[in-house]
Amino acid sequence: MNVKDKIVIVTGAGSGIGAATAKHFAQHGAKVVVSDLKEEKARSVVDEILKSGGEATINVANVAKFEDVEKLITETVKKYGQLDVIVNNAGIGPRQMAKTAEYTLEDWDNVIAVNQTGVFYCMKLALQQMMKQGYGNIVNIASLAGLKASLNNLSYSASKFAVVGMTKSAALEYATKNIRVNAVCPGYTESALLEKLLSVRPDMDQMLKSVIPMKRYGLAEEIAEAVVWLASDNTKFITGQTITLDGGTSL
């Protein structure tokens, strides 16, 4: 995949899909800005990339804060002179899964702030820079929960449906500007969010696997491969798409 020397920001890159994506970009020769709210986790990913001979820097940011996203984009461009790709991966789930009538205001506000508004902030500022330079590529991490109903998970589902819509709208707006916008929609994937769910409901492990035709969870590395492919020069005619990586669950 041709991403050599591309300047890439990955948000939420301290663990899970974000960390795997940052490492995968670096393995293919990209220069990666590893952004996460937790500095220690981001530092660990950067160190691993550097030890493997790749190039990476750290930028601590909370995507729910507009000023943090401004700093992230500004510092990246100041250091490298450009921004080729941004992967909007940072995301959270609710503290407590519940039906809509019992859903807490805190969980609604927090999840929407990170998963939806945070993606908007990153897209808005990245697109401004990409318009200046005349090209760019955005890959948003949505979810199977953004394509189909997700029980007891209103804010997460709403935010991921929003990411799918934002992806398609922006792709249409900037299709003539040499800027591509796509999304990936992972199904049940080994990640911190899944671990959190199973720690509360261990009995759900077998139930979840039973609805996945491949009878296993996805791997973060498998999602990362699709993200890097979409961000590469191998997919120049692809924009506005949502690629579902769910082991057949949506079937």
Results as ranks from 00 to 15, higher is better:
residue 101 A to G: 00
residue 97 M to H: 11
residue 98 A to E: 09
residue 120 F to P: 00
residue 92 I to N: 11
residue 117 T to M: 10
residue 86 I to S: 06
residue 128 Q to K: 15
residue 118 G to C: 04
residue 146 G to N: 03
residue 132 K to V: 13
residue 93 G to W: 08
residue 136 G to P: 02
residue 152 N to D: 14
residue 81 G to R: 06
residue 117 T to P: 01
residue 134 G to K: 07
residue 88 N to W: 00
residue 114 V to D: 05
residue 130 M to C: 03
residue 130 M to G: 04
residue 146 G to Y: 10
residue 72 L to K: 10
residue 118 G to V: 05
residue 145 A to S: 15
residue 110 N to K: 15
residue 121 Y to Q: 06
residue 70 E to F: 02
residue 115 N to F: 09
residue 69 V to M: 03
residue 68 D to P: 10
residue 144 L to N: 01
residue 126 A to T: 01
residue 113 A to M: 07
residue 126 A to M: 07
residue 139 V to I: 15
residue 117 T to Q: 10
residue 100 T to V: 15
residue 107 D to N: 04
residue 75 E to K: 11
residue 142 A to D: 03
residue 151 L to N: 09
residue 94 P to A: 08
residue 94 P to G: 01
residue 137 N to Q: 12
residue 113 A to Q: 06
residue 83 L to N: 02
residue 69 V to Y: 03
residue 91 G to Y: 09
residue 119 V to L: 11
residue 115 N to K: 12
residue 137 N to Y: 02
residue 112 I to K: 04
residue 117 T to A: 02
residue 142 A to E: 03
residue 97 M to L: 13
residue 129 Q to S: 11
residue 98 A to K: 13
residue 129 Q to E: 15
residue 80 Y to L: 04
residue 101 A to N: 08
residue 125 L to K: 14
residue 90 A to C: 11
residue 76 T to L: 06
residue 88 N to C: 14
residue 154 L to H: 08
residue 74 T to S: 15
residue 82 Q to D: 12
residue 67 E to L: 09
residue 75 E to I: 03
residue 92 I to S: 06
residue 103 Y to N: 04
residue 96 Q to D: 09
residue 101 A to F: 12
residue 88 N to P: 10
residue 122 C to D: 02
residue 149 A to V: 15
residue 153 N to L: 09
residue 74 T to V: 11
residue 136 G to K: 09
residue 70 E to Y: 01
residue 69 V to I: 04
residue 125 L to Q: 08
residue 71 K to Y: 10
residue 97 M to P: 08
residue 80 Y to Q: 01
residue 140 N to A: 06
residue 93 G to C: 11
residue 103 Y to E: 03
residue 78 K to H: 13
residue 140 N to Y: 05
residue 154 L to E: 10
residue 153 N to T: 02
residue 127 L to G: 01
